[in-house]
Design a protein around this nucleic acid. Structure first.
Lengths: 198, 198
DNA sequence: AGCTACCAAGCAAGCGCTTGGTTTGTAAAG
DNA sequence: CTTTACAAACCAAGCGCTTGCTTGGTAGCT
């Protein structure tokens, strides 16, 4: 019964506590190496009791992803809405995604990237649809900047490069190190629009 | 007994054919979801016969990684050696890593990134040592460029950003699409040293 | 009474791996 | 040219264990 911190955007109902615990375990050991007995033990119930809340183990994984996509899409939306210029909006998007990915929803976001293929085909399709909304927010901002001449590379490709940069951050970024998330966001921003005055 | 193309740097001995088949399966289904029966079937032998060549299933994974690191470290070395200026060397490094990651060793390289945690701690340490040589080649070139003033960001951080960009490429890059690997390498190069004349 | 949340026990399937023996290729000994 | 020797490569069968999930029942709250 090792207690685990809850993830932002997930409530603390019995179901929510299971989701947070599962996300932690999925990130640390992977979906396949995490047993339902592991998840049950980390919230202090019997393994069979899990299936009162979820039909299958895979449903747990999908629920984790669904919750974290919804939560972070909303965060992205607010990031765009609270800035005027394309440059500031892009900086805010990068900052928000970094916050998602190494901050308060890190476990669930990492799981979404690394355990994607553990979803069945139809659940992948459903999750992909949710993720499409998330990606469109990026593409809108990037396309604007591109049309303004802020960079020449195709916006779709630029988004892919940014996805790689932010997605790799959990493998090396140290939240207690000298580099802040704001610093890192600015460094990544400069990869897109060049190193001009902040 | 679905035949699978061999991976560059792996011979076609019985052992080598097992490694190539395993790399394919590990990439497509993941290490844990690939059974020794799957691997055996794809080269046309019985599952038990695998253990004449490898002590454990995990040893197969490690062997895949070891071979691909050695092969690609050598490729990186030649990339550096065959160019004079820092800029050209960096472009060659990016191009070589892209070739590794979406080209002739794609399966094995992808496996090394995505199935890393399936290795035991001591095997991780051994593989990490091999990977250190590979990374040093990058850092030497990046540090040179940094000292020449080609970019201001810390070379270590820059390498992490590049790792993310190249590492994500398998998720979207289409080898039959309009964008060539040389094009992509130049786009990534511009993320480091800015968009000057080629 | 009825609902949510849970327990205790266990089943069927699939897993990595072992075992004892057989085939196949090669090469020196007669 | 045959015989003997031996190792590499593989087969057929299955063992012991773990896994996701089921079942029938109970405690507590409203």
């Amino acid at each position: 019964m090792a207690e685990s911190l809850s993830i932002n955007g997930i409530d603390d109902s019995p179901r929510g506590r299971l989701l947070s615990a599962a996300a932690h375990l999925f990130r640390d050991k992977g979906f396949d190496r995490t047993t339902v007995r592991d998840i049950a033990a980390s919230v202090g119930i019997q393994s069979g009791s899990i299936f009162h809340h979820f039909k299958t183990k895979e449903d747990i994984l999908y629920a984790v992803m669904e919750e974290v996509i919804h939560f972070n899409t909303e965060r992205l939306r607010q990031a765009v809405a609270s800035h005027d210029t394309g440059k500031d909006q892009l900086r805010a998007l990068i900052r928000a995604e970094l916050q998602s990915i190494v901050g308060d929803t890190a476990e669930a976001m990492t799981v979404m990237v690394t355990e994607w293929r553990c979803l069945s085909a139809d659940k992948q399709a459903r999750a992909l649809k949710l993720r499409g909304i998330y990606e469109q927010l990026w593409l809108d901002v990037l396309s604007d900047l591109h049309q303004q001449g802020a960079f020449t590379t195709d916006p779709f490709i630029m988004r892919r490069l940014l996805t790689g940069m932010t997605g790799w951050a959990p493998h090396w970024f140290d939240r207690d190190g000298p580099l802040s998330l704001d610093d890192l966001a600015n460094i990544m921003l400069a990869r897109v629009i060049g190193e001009s005055a902040p």
